[in-house]
Design a protein around this nucleic acid. Structure first.
Lengths: 344, 344
DNA sequence: TTGATTAATGATACCGATAACATTCAGGTG
DNA sequence: CACCTGAATGTTATCGGTATCATTAATCAA
């Protein structure tokens, strides 16, 4: 007799297997399996018997056994930098709502902007033999790339389009968007345009946005002045602090481009608190077109990113990759829109 | 010969198995397995050989095979209503950061406030033989409850504590919190307190908050007036619209309690747009204590919910359940705080 | 010395589904 | 009518780990 204490609850409890279903339906296990999966190989009448038996027993197949046998897990691993930012939540939401009806389950991981964590997550995803990966951005650890290579996991990158990308990518050019916004601000007549960007480290979106800002300035024969830029975590309060710092160090600034609506909104609130009128005293532009930017008055000028469409397209490409289809573009640029509103 | 086209990429590619590792290390597969999992059963020297072999081959075990064999999946299923609301993102984040180091992988699903979807998600979680479930709230479909029962999945409910709960729960009393906030507003001297709540359907938090508001009124011998209440989706704009509706229909209102910071902030912005001074013209209180409430001036009075601690505690209880430990409280009330700030 | 005990490892079987191959049987064909 | 074809179903083996039960060698008490 075994020890009673400290034994997992599920100890001796027997679960329903497909054999039980088959027995009840009066067929062999494999026929039951076929009836539940690829019913066209089975007489409709048989299929109904099996389905009835499965329903009666409340049978739920063991997907571990299934994927061990047929070598696909029906799992897609998704990695985003963080769940706290609603822009990624939107993308995940649209990926999963496309994948679930096709019978796939999404594993979601957030790397918290850390390459090592991403690598660990990829390792777990591979241990589950994910059929495909969807990663945010195109910067990954060397080992992560090697693992993806060795285990031959079809991989899609989302949220940025750039030459660096080694994988299929779906998104928009963050560089181009920042370039155009900056150009717009210049054309609007602002004369000293500051920049508050998100953390640059291991973040290609941040890096490309920054570069877009720089290149736009230089294209218009302005010089890039690091003193007019700040790096800020993606939090309201930090955006406010960065704004304050810019304003105090350089009074003559008349416009600030923030590389994220969160930062921009924090900055806007900072202005509001100090009774600095936007855009009269200073103009402000954001990036991402999140809900927050639209509700304040003045409404935030920003860049609209097709985050749902990115998710949808990424999901569709993922399905194609899994199914071995080959009509896939390596770069899927879904574009962006300048949303000119009241803060500029 | 088989058809060439339309065959999944991974077709004939052989993956590393534990047998390969064992061969390279010069031991049997089972010893390799032990070395990688429960190293205390293996001579340190042997373990090192195996680890070296595994590293050399970049071996990543197949967790489907593992869980099929030893009957635990090391998967915990988490269901939240939505990913778009950062409060749930925070909870998920703290759950996963506690579970991952213990070797568990979280499966995350969002039911979009729909019981049927939740049931479907639970079904997939069970198909992966999740070791435990963490569900938000205590309203689930009948079938969902039956499945949890039949498959004996240890289940923890988060975010609300109430008598209704059939499972172990971790959170705070939404009823109590709303009751106290309303009582506070009454004690503050407001005379006509409106209420904007989130959708009530299938949402025990919303229902309990509403009831807390009602009961607090009645305890102070006020009558509950449905004309002073609105139901609003959890979006800034809807909160604003509900506020507008309240203001236009009932000018004499001097305070509004919104059952979520998102709604409250939308309402606050509505006031801002219409140059209604808060709290001079009207007071406003929210619920959840999200970052957004703190950045505007006036800062939002709200209820602070220990969302990280909820996640952490839920994760810890989940681990205990999985390990068959029995020193577990059925109700884990982590409390709340009234955050009195400037809008009241 | 010897049986008992423990540490380290191995052989085999099994988890639960399904792939691969085999079988059966009905219907069509020359 | 022998033969083929294909639809429907079954038998067996297998996926890749690990539980279970041996086995071996080393340690130890009597």
């Amino acid at each position: 007799m075994k020890s009673e204490a400290n034994v997992p609850l599920k100890s001796d409890h027997k679960l329903i297997t497909i054999r039980d279903v088959a027995r009840l339906a009066g067929v062999s296990p494999i026929t039951a399996s076929r009836a539940l999966n690829k019913s066209h190989l089975v007489k409709p009448e048989t299929r109904q018997k099996v389905e009835a038996a499965a329903a009666e027993l409340k049978f739920i197949g063991n997907s571990a056994a299934g994927s061990l046998s047929n070598k696909r897990s029906n799992i897609v691993g998704i990695i985003v930098p963080t769940l706290s930012n609603s822009i990624f939540a939107d993308t995940i939401q649209s990926i999963t709502s496309r994948l679930m009806p096709e019978g796939f389950q999404a594993l979601i991981g957030s790397n918290e902007y850390c390459l090592q964590r991403e690598e660990d997550i990829i390792r777990t995803f591979i241990s589950h033999r994910a059929d495909a990966l969807i990663l945010t951005g195109n910067i990954h650890s060397k080992v992560a790339e090697e693992l993806i290579e060795q285990y031959r996991i079809p991989t899609v990158e989302i949220w940025n389009i750039s030459e660096r990308s080694k994988h299929i990518s779906v998104g928009m050019s963050n560089y181009q968007a920042a370039f155009e916004m900056t150009s717009f601000l210049i054309s609007r007549g602002y004369e000293k345009i500051g920049y508050i960007g998100g953390p640059l480290e291991n973040n290609d979106r941040s890096q490309d946005r920054m570069q877009g800002y720089r290149d736009a300035l230089e294209k218009h024969d302005w010089s890039f002045d690091p003193a007019l830029t700040r790096e800020s975590p993606l939090e309201f309060a930090s955006g406010g602090a960065a704004m304050q710092s810019l304003l105090s160090k350089s009074q003559s600034i008349d416009c600030v481009f923030a590389s994220s609506d969160i930062i921009a909104f924090g900055a806007l609130m900072e202005c509001h608190r100090n009774e600095i009128k936007v855009p009269r005293d200073i103009a402000l532009a954001g990036f991402d077109n999140t809900a927050i930017g639209a509700i304040f008055s003045p409404a935030l000028t920003t860049i609209s990113v097709p985050r749902q469409r990115i998710g949808l397209k990424a999901a569709e490409i993922t399905l194609k990759l899994i199914r071995g289809e080959t009509d896939i573009n390596r770069r899927n640029d879904l574009g962006f829109d300048l949303k000119i509103r009241e803060t500029t």
